[in-house]
């Protein structure tokens, strides 16, 4: 069974890589594989289901790979996030045409709004994201702020969305611009999550206000 699913996914990906678009229909796609629509329907209701699962696979294998590195436990959370992003780019590479197509044809054009096909990918990422945010709070690499802290993990998700869109548009040799973008956005994000001048400013204002 597993092999069959793998085969569907591989053929689906290859189709994108060769034609830059999805197959015309499930039946046409299955026919090329020498199978019928029924076989497909046993596992997925539609191509969108398959899309979601492929994305989920990308997230799962990225996180597995990142955590398998020996250095991972020694990393600060900033580096854990960086490592996730660099690995994500690697994992997306074989799916370039697929990712391109999905992002160009998503319904919601705005950055920060999660397209449907990323639902499961997001679930996987969010559990990773919460994990590193909590670790960062423990090590004080990330500062606990009332009300805002709960949104930290979501902020990192916005970074991921931004970087996927960036990667799609990146034509630089070896994707060097994406590497630079990953470095810069992560530094920016984690500098904001860590102690900033605003915290001491807020503290000062609060102090002065209370003394009135």
């Amino acid at each position: 069974m597993k092999n069959f699913i793998q085969k569907i996914k591989k053929n689906y990906r290859d189709h994108f890589n060769m034609t830059n678009k999805p197959p015309r229909s499930i039946s046409a796609f299955m026919q090329d594989m020498g199978e019928d629509e029924e076989a497909f329907k046993k596992y997925y209701k539609s191509f969108s289901d398959l899309d979601k699962e492929i994305w989920k696979d990308i997230a799962v294998s990225t996180i597995t790979r990142v955590k398998a590195e020996d250095v991972y436990i020694d990393y600060a959370v900033r580096e854990k996030m960086l490592s996730f992003l660099y690995t994500l780019v690697e994992e997306m590479k074989p799916y370039r045409a697929f990712v391109n197509y999905q992002f160009k044809h998503k319904k919601n054009g705005r950055i920060g709004i999660t397209p449907k096909f990323l639902d499961d990918f997001k679930t996987e990422f969010m559990s990773f994201s919460h994990e590193i945010v909590n670790e960062g709070l423990d090590t004080t690499e990330i500062i606990n702020r009332p009300f805002i802290s709960e949104k930290y993990a979501d902020a990192l998700w916005v970074e991921v969305l931004f970087l996927i869109s960036f990667w799609i548009r990146d034509n630089s040799a070896n994707g060097e611009s994406t590497d630079a973008a990953i470095e810069k956005t992560s530094n920016f994000a984690f500098d904001l999550l860590g102690q900033t001048p605003l915290d001491s400013a807020f503290d000062l204002v609060k102090f002065l206000f209370q003394r009135k």
Partner: peptide, 20 residues
Amino acid sequence: PLSYPLVVRTFNKDLGKSPD
């Protein structure tokens, strides 16, 4: 400084192996 994950990535891309 460059982050260590980026250093690792550069090694993987150019030399096919991590610095470790």
